[in-house]
């Protein structure tokens, strides 16, 4: 089966003053896959993510989202349409601190869909149950939640508008290995049940090697993306060191 690309990045260049972060990045994200984005600190993983989301304007190059060029977002309402079709889980959760958990998940629904408050609440509860959160959490404020719960609420909020695709920025960072593994399971379960496409930035070797279908590595200001097995065996020295290091070996052995 030939899958279609939901996101296509072509010859992307990102430059801060004289410092070039990306120099000709090409990357496609295909339907229904889980793509892991890997790179050393400061190689521009978050910059790439922000460019794909349209939060940052690229120095040059093209980002096509669901077949439309994101660069022309100013002239038409393209981006607004996209925003209904993707969800984002920010690294720190980015929950609205003044709203309860339930209100956080209801916020995008009430903003975009003209339905009754009670129905929106039912949908929000559905989403929260889906990520494994019980009633106890619904009326708490973000400041009262543990790190793992914040990530789950943020994921429920990202899924509130039934997106076709979610971006996850370090979904398992700051979680203990057991919670991280549960979160990985959750991502996999949602992908299979909701037909989701997932792009995640991660340093968690376990999630990269267990749930991702493909890996995209940012090295030398470019992206090398391929099937998991191909990337793990890639001859590039940084990639070899990354996956061949002690921690990487422990993970492959476990898998």
């Amino acid at each position: 089966m030939v899958s279609t690309a939901l996101i296509e990045v072509r010859n992307l260049v990102n430059r801060f003053d004289k410092h070039t972060v990306h120099d000709g990045v090409n990357l496609s994200i295909y339907e229904n896959e889980i793509l892991g984005i890997v790179g050393g600190s400061g190689t521009g993983k978050s910059v790439l993510l922000r460019t794909m989301l349209g939060l940052r304007e690229a120095t040059s190059g093209e980002v096509r989202v669901f077949g439309e060029d994101i660069a022309c977002r100013n002239s038409s309402g393209n981006l607004a349409q996209c925003q209904n079709r993707w969800g984002v889980l920010f690294q720190g959760g980015a929950l609205f601190s003044g709203l309860t958990v339930l209100e956080n998940v209801m916020a995008p629904i009430l903003e975009h869909i003209d339905i009754s408050h009670a129905f929106a609440e039912e949908l929000a509860r559905l989403k929260l149950s889906m990520v494994g959160l019980g009633e106890v959490a619904y009326f708490k404020f973000p400041a009262e939640l543990s790190g793992g719960m914040v990530k789950r609420v943020a994921l429920a909020r990202a899924l509130a508008l039934e997106p076709r695709m979610v971006f996850l920025d370090e979904p398992t960072s700051g979680l203990d290995p057991i919670s991280a593994a549960e979160f990985d399971e959750l991502i996999l379960y949602l992908r299979d049940h909701l037909n989701l496409t997932v792009a995640m930035i991660s340093h968690d070797m376990d999630s990269l090697l267990t749930i991702c279908d493909r890996l995209a590595v940012i090295v030398d200001k470019k992206v090398i993306a391929d099937k998991k097995d191909v990337i793990v065996a890639h001859p590039h020295p940084w990639i070899r060191e990354y996956f061949g290091g002690v921690r990487g070996r422990a993970s492959t052995r476990a898998a």
């Binding site: 509860r125 149950s129 889906m130 009633e135 106890v136 009326f139």
Partner: peptide
């Protein structure tokens, strides 16, 4: 999802 939801008692304050 409903199984999850039903197994939890309501605790709205």
């Amino acid at each position: 999802v409903l199984n999850i939801e039903k197994s939890r008692p309501s605790s709205r304050p």
